[in-house]
Design a protein around this nucleic acid. Structure first.
Lengths: 146, 146
DNA sequence: TACATTTGCATCGTGAACGATATAAATAGA
DNA sequence: TCTATTTATATCGTTCACGATGCAAATGTA
């Protein structure tokens, strides 16, 4: 019985579980908007900076392009984004929001923050705890991101 | 531009990213052992308590059986576990470690904690920070787990 | 300029997650 | 006891992640 190999001592298992559960908490609102959580992440990037090549989106989400490309293909099929070949660099695919993709921002703003506040209202963490958590997660992310 | 909808303000995105990156950090060692991270989680459960029904394993990992069943089927195919129909309750599948599955505990103990310590050695968090992080994650998990 | 290397994206295969559905065994209630 | 409900597990379809590979455009170098 090695303490290092017990679930209850694993930060990674906690991260894995917390990430799954909080993504599940997003699912009902996102489903009402017709999108998934990774698609929501792509939209947050594009709401902040539209007309980005696949590479930039992947870099901001700390994902590989072989994850993002199929994601964008599904989003294009749903009419949320369009992809156009880059003009200076013809290898690039420039991803842009459609009107539908832009409208989703207002719907997201209207429902998502409130829904998440409700679902986490019973959580004993206060604002300082969340900022602390954010900093600790950033430390781990920056250490492991190459 | 809604601050609530920016990536840099999202705890969920941080959790999602940190979980992915730390799982990736496990991958090289686990690949050498011939297993994946979710399979390692199943093994940690069985190393602590062998001969469990699918349901118990799923509950401890906060997963559904429709995730765990295929996982166990792959592990059985690799000769790490065996599944036998329950004797009192014939609906149950009792999952047990094979010799190979038991041996993996020593190999895991020999390599995994050291590898993770190395990879996180540049991380500025100290032991108190990690315990704090564990508590904060437990708060979120317990709030969202039904 | 000619060729090698790098870069940007796409495709393929595998293993998760998970909602929805199915099936058999166990349990509850009339 | 007989039927209805619940429980334990399995199956199916879709979407991610991600390693490996492929290809064309761009860049570097002799």
């Amino acid at each position: 019985m090695h303490a290092e190999l017990q679930l209850k001592n694993q930060i990674c298992f906690r991260l894995y579980t917390a990430a799954r559960l909080i993504t599940q908490a997003y699912t009902p609102v996102l489903t009402a908007l017709g999108i998934t959580y990774p698609q929501y992440l792509v939209l947050m990037v594009l709401w902040e900076d539209d007309n980005l090549p696949v590479n930039d989106i992947a870099r901001r989400l700390v994902l590989e392009t072989n994850t993002v490309t199929p994601l964008l293909q599904r989003m294009e099929k749903q009419g949320i984004v369009v992809r156009k070949k880059g003009e200076q660099d013809k290898r690039q695919q420039i991803v842009s929001l459609t009107d539908k993709g832009k409208q989703l921002e207002e719907e997201a703003y209207a429902h998502i923050p409130e829904s998440m506040r409700n679902q986490l209202s019973a959580c004993p963490l206060n604002l300082d705890d969340y900022m602390n958590l954010a900093n600790e997660l950033d430390s781990i992310i920056n250490t492991l991101k190459k």
